[in-house]
Computed example of a mutant assay.
Amino acid sequence: MTDSLAPFVDVVRSRRSARRFLPDPMSSQEIWSVLEDAQTAPSNSNTQPWAVHVVSGELRDALRDELLRAYDDGRESPDFTADYGNGVHLQRSRDHGAALYQSWGVARSDVEGRREVVRENLRFYGAPHVAFLFMPALGDGVRTAGDIGMYAQTFLLSLTARGFHGIPQTVLGMYADTVRNTLGISDDLKLLFGISFGHADPSAPVNDLRMHRLPLGDSVVVHGCS
């Protein structure tokens, strides 16, 4: 952990998703500091709808094993769909997948190799900690999910500012029942995704992967500003 927090711009532009972690755990105080930062995230009408479960140690290992069994048994139980349509968003997702598998050295034709990459997701990429972000069923859920997105980004930026790394993982949300059953969580809470976090492994080539970002002009229109 750094002695002083990095400037905001450096934090935002240096944040990246790590896909290989060291086993060394963060201290309770370090985790609590990140959670306190995340708790300052904005939300609609200050509803603060996030319900966050942080899992470490033996329970983390037990949950990992349950997730792997659910994957091998084909027992997906998502609370939300993952549909990218048929246009540019689907293509971006495919480009992301191609870059990711290439970074792992897995060919498109290597079916078992691709399955092993999914298993690495479910092993939390070796991270000693994982935070599961649940939400209550309020209306159509869009505003609530947006609130949790702001919470998650604050969480991730806090990790970066403090010298740690995290990765948001949609795939963990594909096994919502497994997570709820293992952690004893009510069905009233819906699992959006998880964030594995800790110390990134600096020697892992996969952590050198940098995902492409669109030019601003592809997604932003500025009105009334010279």
Rank of each mutant, 00 (worst) to 15 (best):
R92V: 00
P23T: 13
R210A: 09
T170F: 00
L122H: 07
A82F: 15
G224M: 08
L159E: 02
M211F: 12
M135D: 13
S103Q: 00
S77D: 14
S219R: 13
R180V: 07
V220Y: 01
I31Q: 10
A107D: 10
R13V: 04
G87C: 00
F134H: 03
E30C: 06
D147F: 00
V118L: 08
R123S: 05
F124H: 12
Q48I: 06
Y125M: 05
L5P: 05
D37M: 10
I195C: 05
M135C: 13
D110C: 12
V130H: 04
A200Y: 06
V221F: 14
I185N: 03
S93F: 02
F21E: 03
Q169T: 05
I167W: 01
P25A: 12
G97F: 10
S17A: 15
S186P: 11
I167C: 13
T144Y: 06
G184E: 12
R180A: 03
G87S: 09
D61T: 14
V171F: 00
M26H: 03
H89T: 10
H89S: 03
G166M: 02
R20Q: 15
I31C: 02
T40A: 01
P215E: 12
A127Y: 01
V55Q: 04
L22A: 15
V130K: 02
S196A: 15
V171Y: 03
